[in-house]
Simulated scan of single mutants.
Amino acid sequence: MPDEHAAEPAPPTVTEVAAAAGVSAATVSRVLTGRVRVSTSARVQVHDAIARLGYVRHRAPRRTDHQAVDLPMAAVVFEPAVRLFRDGFCARLLAGAEEELSRHGVPLLTMSAIRGTVSSATRFLTDGGVGGVLLVGAPGRHPLAVSLAASLVPLRAAGRPELAIPYVDVDNRDGARQAVEHLLLRGRRTIAMIAGPPDSPAAADRLDGYRHAMLAAGRQPLAAYGDFSTPSGGHAAAWLLDRTPRLDALFVASDAMAAGALQALRKAGRRVPEDVAVVGFDDAPLAAFTTPALTTVRQPVEDLGAVTAALLLAPDPAPENPILPTELVVRAST
């Protein structure tokens, strides 16, 4: 029988990270702070070791309210700047964060994260010039995300990350459940899904919610994958139609992909919703203007940004990772 009182394994140390990376502890420290030039190969080895061991430095004590107000917050978006300004999701999330921070007199700095600027970005974000960092769309092994996760800077992600850091997320699984149950209530029998990229936690959660809802109803799941873009939704819908001609419903993991699916259905001569019902996810502005208007799962994007920002401001934030509810918005596509 296992010993219930056995001590939990100690968290990994800098020395252990150094040993796993095959470098010195001083090199690990330099990589974490970004203050000293380190060879690319050594930096990659350190980041890999940190991600593999799950190393996280203990956070520094929170600043007082007065100190926090004196410092800006930084939002780091892991997308190229050109996509950042085109992406409605990011714009809405940052608007929510900015509005919450502005109520406390705290400015929000926004920057995109590209691999060529990791050292300078790490230096800027960990030198004490910002009161906290809000991560948006952080890939698990991105060197900047790994460095920030191991640093002392207050940190929280908008959306569940792959790294073990605090976050705020929306209930993607329950949103998928709502979509599937709505289609079942509409009498649809063969419900397929166009899922997002497998390496996206949000996409994985939506796919998991879809599968559970289908199996609970005694139906067989069937999924194709896109990359959240409109063309990928069209390609995935065409593939599903070819594989399952009797398909009569689609749940799509983003409204942009759903717009592509609607185009593919029109091209195939399928009427929406008479032949195939379609549900998207996001309730992006475009959802109300597709033909027909898109039934979709609304996620509270502005609230996601606001709650994440509020937790960064809190002198002693709650350890829980809040999950915000989603809501089905019914329009003409179902």
Results as ranks from 00 to 15, higher is better:
Gly22His: 12
Val170Arg: 06
Asp303Pro: 05
Ala259Arg: 00
Ala216Asp: 14
Pro166Gly: 03
Arg270Asp: 03
Ala25Val: 06
Ala306Arg: 14
Arg52His: 15
Ala121Lys: 09
Ala68Glu: 06
Val44His: 15
Arg57Met: 08
Val276Gly: 01
Ser120Arg: 10
Ala253Asn: 05
Leu183Asp: 07
Ala264Tyr: 02
Thr33Gln: 15
Ile191Gly: 06
Leu135Gly: 03
Ala18Cys: 08
Ala164Tyr: 04
Gly175Asn: 11
Ser24Cys: 13
His142Lys: 15
Leu312Lys: 14
Met73His: 08
Pro72Trp: 09
Val31Gly: 04
His212Arg: 14
Ala256Ser: 15
His142Val: 09
Arg59Asp: 04
Ala60Cys: 10
Ala20Asn: 10
Leu247Thr: 00
Glu320Thr: 09
Val329Ile: 14
Asp48Pro: 07
Leu152Asp: 09
Val76Asp: 08
Ala74Asp: 10
Leu241Ser: 06
Arg63Lys: 05
His66Met: 11
Ser24Val: 03
Val56Asn: 12
His5Cys: 03
Leu324Gln: 08
Val23Glu: 12
Leu71Glu: 07
Ala121Asn: 13
Gly105Asn: 11
Val301Phe: 07
Leu134Asp: 01
Pro161Gly: 06
Gly260Gln: 00
Phe289Val: 03
Asp171Trp: 02
Ser120Phe: 04
Gly128Asn: 15
Thr64Pro: 09
Pro9Lys: 02
Arg186Pro: 00
Ala176Trp: 00
Ile114Arg: 15
Ala97Ser: 12
Ser151Phe: 06
Ala314Asp: 15
Gly96Trp: 11
Glu274Lys: 02
Leu32Thr: 05
Leu135Asn: 02
Met73Ser: 02
Ile323Asp: 09
Ala19Pro: 06
Ala138Met: 12
His142Trp: 07
Leu328Arg: 09
Arg177Pro: 11
Val77Glu: 04
